[in-house]
């Protein structure tokens, strides 16, 4: 290893910039995360497992990841369409829509949380029509297919399934889903949009000259080019949703085992001064977040190797 750690350079300010970088990185990020991991080590794997392996914790983790996944899938599909419309079409109101996509980034999560709750509570603007009109109508419509399905399901020896929608959006998993969609909305759109701008129009033209219909071109030529960015945005949106707290706790209702998300459990543990318990759940979430970070990086490496850019 003959290579020096830092190459000699005529640029000034090496000591100062390096000093500030590492000092702040250590105090703000590395030491606190180290403290969490240390707490985990002193608590021990068994202790962590004992904390995590309880129905309430499992249910909360499962709820957080399941709904985050659904929200990220929704944002993946919607975000790609959104990016396409914003990048390719010009229409009245284009700029307002383009700016509005970033609102979930700019709006404090607590503000978003109470706003969504106000809208989707049973007496709210959307919530009322859901509770009084849409949900009953949907449930009436679903009654027959549900009965038909359950003839099959019980015939195979399973418990009957329910296709009924909940009567309320706020204070149910649907409310959590909507809040997670809101906070994750910009990620896919904003990672995909620059890629659409970069697409060489000649590539789409080439596809057309070879006889492909527009739909074929979009599916076979355009979509594969957007896929790596879309997946990156999906992973970012998923990571954000899993860790989200502020916008969810207002609309969730926070009923243990039903609408209690994992970050809330950490807060509850801390309020009970159970630092070990909080650390255990925190470590579980940290590990999962790092795994997702790794996946993001792997996607980028894969796409760079495959098509020479990200």
């Amino acid at each position: 290893m003959g290579r020096p750690v830092v190459h000699r350079s005529p640029m000034p300010g090496l000591g100062l910039s390096m000093g500030i970088t590492f000092t702040m990185l250590s105090i703000v990020v590395l030491l606190p995360i180290g403290a969490l991991l240390l707490q985990g080590v002193s608590y021990g794997a068994e202790g962590i497992w004992a904390t995590v392996n309880r129905e309430r914790v499992w249910k909360a983790l499962y709820l957080s990841f399941r709904l985050s996944f659904y929200a990220a899938v929704f944002n993946l599909i919607f975000g790609v369409i959104l990016a396409w419309v914003l990048a390719r079409y010009r229409f009245p109101g284009h700029r307002i829509l383009d700016a509005a996509v970033d609102l979930p980034f700019a709006l404090p999560t607590a503000v978003a949380g109470i706003a969504l709750t106000a809208l989707y509570a049973p007496n709210g603007f959307f919530g009322a029509s859901w509770t009084h009109t849409i949900a009953p109508a949907l449930n009436a419509g679903l009654a027959w297919p549900e009965a038909a399905l359950n003839v099959l399901v019980t015939g195979l020896g399973f418990e009957p399934w329910s296709l009924q929608v909940p009567p309320r959006i706020a204070y149910s998993t649907m409310g959590i889903f909507i809040a997670l969609v809101f906070v994750g909305l910009p990620f896919v759109a904003r990672t995909v949009q620059p890629v659409i701008h970069e697409i060489d129009r000649e590539v789409e033209e080439a596809s057309a000259t070879l006889g492909a219909s527009r739909l074929h071109t979009l599916r076979r030529v355009v979509w594969p080019m957007l896929l790596p960015a879309a997946l990156t945005g999906f992973a970012l949106s998923l990571a954000r949703a899993v860790g989200e707290y502020g916008s969810v706790i207002f609309i969730a209702g926070n009923k243990p085992l039903v609408t209690e998300i994992a970050p809330l459990l950490i807060v509850i543990q801390l309020e009970e001064f159970s630092y070990d318990g909080a650390a255990a759940i925190g470590i579980a979430m940290l590990v999962i977040s790092f795994a997702m970070l790794l996946v993001i990086n792997l996607i980028q490496v894969w796409s760079r190797r495959r098509i020479g850019y990200v």
Binding site: L30, P32, L236, A239, G243, L270, Y275, A279, G282
Partner: peptide
């Protein structure tokens, strides 16, 4: 690696971030 470390806070739940500071 340094850039990854700087980006790290984006993938940590804010609640976990707060927890880390309380634990330190």
């Amino acid at each position: 690696f340094l850039i990854t470390l700087i980006d790290l806070p984006f993938s940590v739940s804010p609640v976990v971030a707060g927890l880390c500071i309380v634990l330190l």
